[in-house]
Design a binder for these strands. Structure first.
Lengths: 222, 222
DNA sequence: ATAATATTTTAAGGAACTTTTAAGGTTTCT
DNA sequence: AGAAACCTTAAAAGTTCCTTAAAATATTAT
């Protein structure tokens, strides 16, 4: 299970993340409303946890925007004690659950599990890495349609993120096992893919390891 | 269960729709009285929820018109607190239930379920997606008659909305299991269907996924 | 049965997109 | 500097898909 957690109080966030990850829930963390909204729009989370008081955009704003776009990912709202009105607003705008601060992290984990144990709305087959999500069914990378060869390459890279794949491997996997020579095929398509990653403004990059091959990695990673 | 919800306050509507859909009620939404009336006349809803204060046509107007045409779909009226007079009017014109604003969405859901648990007026076999309703009995798509092949294809697409169906699948399902070649059959009929969706001004579109097949999707969805 | 109408098949041209090819440019390493 | 590996680009070649209309077939009405 992968969730998004939008929370500006850093100490709290770190503690909560630590406990959640320990119990097998993978957490992406956003520290303000703007970043939170951006991430929330990606169809890769099983649930979203929103603090209400946030810099730039409130949790309510995020909730509203997300729901307006028809995204149905389960959402849990967090807010400081006694802001009962927020609770009502949140539930009205389509939140799935509400938790008053301070809360026990274990309870949050439990509610997340309860929410996500519902029949999957997402039966899509999606491979994720960093801010990329590739849909195997319709061959789209972050909604952008790819051609067959582009798709073959990005799929191989996404299935082996941060690992070097050499050209012979890519050739035989994408073009066929006869692997008749042309390294340039791969070079051309790597170039096309880089252009598309650029267009998507993705943090992920395809790095060249000279003499060895290519690897997919996230901008800030080594 | 599929209902029509006519409501002009967008935020409220989104929140309510979200909760209803989550509880398994499929909701079509109209934002003003005119659109509401148009939709209300389609024989596809198990119930209709009408706000009273609406642009263009009031909920009362819609109610009256719908009932005058002999349509017996259960109707719930919504109105701002204390407009008791509206309540009386509504029930007089043949509303089935009445709910004062603000209301709890869960209560609306409960009342809907109660209303619809009555003997079904609609035993027609209809498949819906987005603003499309296809009647299996007389092979009409939003009242527009289709030929056998057209019907076969739209039926397959409607039964698998937002999923890619390839040509071989469509060929074998519509033309027969021998699936003798001709991809062009499918292409021709997809073209005919697109023309009809256009004519119906539907929000739904048939998308081509080059090399893979076709998928039905709603304009704004991915 | 025959004509009128509608549907399905066939076919062909062209539009849109993909892949291959090729050539020139850049980077990296020795 | 020179060589090898890699990048980028664009034109050529190849595919797939769209659209249309006429021919063949089936259906319905007269």
């Amino acid at each position: 299970m992968r969730i998004l957690y939008v929370e500006d109080e850093k100490y709290l966030a770190d503690a909560v993340i630590h406990v959640l990850e320990k119990s097998g829930i993978s957490v992406d963390h956003a520290e303000d409303g703007e970043e939170g909204l951006n991430l929330a729009l990606k169809p890769i989370y099983d649930a979203i946890v929103l603090d209400i008081m946030l810099p730039k955009l409130s949790g309510i704003d995020i909730l509203r925007d997300v729901r307006e776009r028809g995204i149905k990912t389960p959402i849990i709202m967090l807010s400081a004690l006694s802001q009962v009105e927020d609770k009502i607003k949140g539930l009205n705008y389509g939140a799935d659950d509400y938790l008053a601060k301070p809360f026990k992290t274990a309870e949050l984990a439990a509610r997340l599990r309860a929410l996500v144990r519902r029949p999957a709305l997402n039966d899509e087959k999606i491979i994720c890495y960093s801010d990329l999500y590739y849909n195997l069914e319709d061959r789209t990378l972050n909604e952008l349609p790819l051609s067959e060869k582009e798709a073959g390459i990005i799929e191989a890279l996404l299935k082996n993120p941060e690992h070097v794949l050499n050209k012979e491997y890519l050739l035989s996997h994408v073009w066929g096992s006869d692997a008749s020579g042309e390294d340039n095929y791969v070079e051309v398509y790597i170039s096309y893919l880089r252009k598309k990653l650029e267009k998507l403004k993705s943090k992920a990059k395809i790095k060249t390891i000279r003499g060895l091959g290519y690897k997919l990695c996230s901008k800030n990673s080594s």
